[in-house]
Each structure stands twice: as structure tokens, then as C-alpha cells.
Design a protein around this nucleic acid. Structure first.
Lengths: 118, 118
DNA sequence: AATAGTGTTATATAATTATATAACACTATT
DNA sequence: AATAGTGTTATATAATTATATAACACTATT
């Protein structure tokens, strides 16, 4: 689901946009051939300047995820398949953590640190 | 564990530093009263300029996690306790995901998206 | 042929992030 | 009193990020 970027997170807006679109690909919400909203719509969806949208799309294009057709639109170039088992593992973990009333930011800090160290 | 920042992640170095130190607090690796390495040591540990270290420490100080004593050093101001159950939940999840050969970046993208949407 | 709806390119400006460097101020030890 | 080891402040510079704005180029429909 594409939504406003968080302007206070410290993470550059164009990186957040890249991440959101990659997440849609991973979850199968955006599939090969699908057309993205127009750059001017994306500008509104993400609540950023058009140039910031273009910077994110440029990055995704360079990484081979999307392609542009001038005068027509942006399209998903390939599916990014992921084992459903992985998604289920993460869903369960998120579900448990939410029961414990922890917030996303804290959860991600621990997640990253445990991954890199533990 | 404090380590070099990732200069290619797109995330500002000072944010990465803040996050790493917060993660240490959450995992109990840094406890109330503990002294941080000197700013000049941190500069080497994180592989950034001293001003970038100071920017991160300033943020942590403003949020009440640490305090500075001029001429002496930086100290942890309070413990950030977290239910061990939460850490165990995350450890198990990370363990499963590593078995599936997924990478951290992909895992975190899914994690965040599932949290905000699923 | 005209037009509405796409993506594309360009210029200017400001804020933020990061580096390099130097000098200063305080504390604890010698 | 001197000194080594801390944090602190200041100045300059460059790259990156983000915005605002305008004009242009291509495609598909009317």
C-alpha cells in the first residue's frame, strides 16, 4: 500500500518511496505488467515534489524493477517472487509483537541488531 | 555492538549511529551509568567525522538517553527496559528467516509493510 | 489536426548532511 | 603547576536531498 512518506523519520523521502514500491513487489501487490499511478498522482500519494518521485523511479528503473514508456506510463518489469512461508513467518512475528504493545520503530531496531549480531 | 555505518544505505550516518546506540540500550548491552567510548574513538568506530558523531550524541542527549560531562565523557542516563519475551520472539523470527536465506534488507521491507498494512 | 494525458528535461533555490580543521574549556592525574 | 585526556565551539566547503516552476516530447483518443 502506497502512502505518504514520513518527513520526520530522517530517512530520505526518495528512499522511503523506493522501499514502499519494493515492498509491494515482494508482497505481490504489484505484479509484472501492472501500471503505476502517473508521476503526478504519485506526487500526491507520497506528498513530495515531482522531482523526488522521479528520483525514486529512476533508482527503481536502474535496478530493473520498472520501466518507463514516455507518453504512456511506468510499468512493473518483473515479478519479485518470495516464498510465502517467509511472509507467513513475518506475519506471525508482527502479530505477536503487536500483542506486546511494542512500537514499530523499537521492533525494527531490535530486529536489525539481532540479525547483525545475535 | 557498535560498528561502521553503511555509507551506501541512503540512511544518514548520524541516524544510523543513533539507531545503533538505541539498539544497544534496548538489548541491555549498554546500561545506566556506563560510559561510552570517547567521541574520538566513536569517530573511528563508526568511520565518520567527529561532527557527525556529535550530531548523533546531541540527538540522544535531547531524547534523554545519555548525558555529557565535559572533560570526562558521555554516560548512559537511564536503562531502556524491554520485555525479554519480545527479544526472544524476534530472535526466533530472525532465526527462521536466516534459514530461508533471505537478506536483511528484504526482510525489513516486508516486516515494515506487514506491520503498517497486514 | 487538435487535444488531453502521459513522461522528460532544465533552472534556481534552500535546507540538510558530512567532512576537514583548528582552537578552546574542563577534569583528573602526575 | 603541568599535562594528557576528555568534551565543545567555530568556520569553511562540498555533496545530497527536496522544493518550485516552466517548458518540452511522446502517445492515444477525439
Amino acid at each position: 500500500m502506497l502512502r505518504k512518506v514520513d518527513k520526520h523519520s530522517g530517512i530520505p523521502a526518495y528512499i522511503q518511496i523506493v522501499n514502499m514500491i519494493k515492498a509491494e513487489l515482494l508482497l505481490g501487490n504489484l505484479q509484472k505488467g501492472a501500471q503505476l499511478p502517473t508521476v503526478r498522482d504519485l506526487q500526491n500519494i507520497f506528498d513530495v515534489n515531482i522531482n523526488t518521485v522521479l528520483k525514486a523511479l529512476e533508482r527503481l528503473k536502474a535496478e530493473g524493477y520498472i520501466e518507463a514508456e514516455q507518453g504512456v506510463g511506468y510499468f512493473i518489469k518483473r515479478d519479485v517472487d518470495i516464498d510465502q512461508k517467509i511472509i507467513e513467518t513475518i506475519r506471525e512475528c508482527v502479530s505477536k509483537l503487536k500483542e506486546d504493545r511494542i512500537d514499530l520503530y523499537t521492533a525494527m531496531l531490535i530486529f536489525e541488531e539481532v540479525w547483525k549480531n545475535g
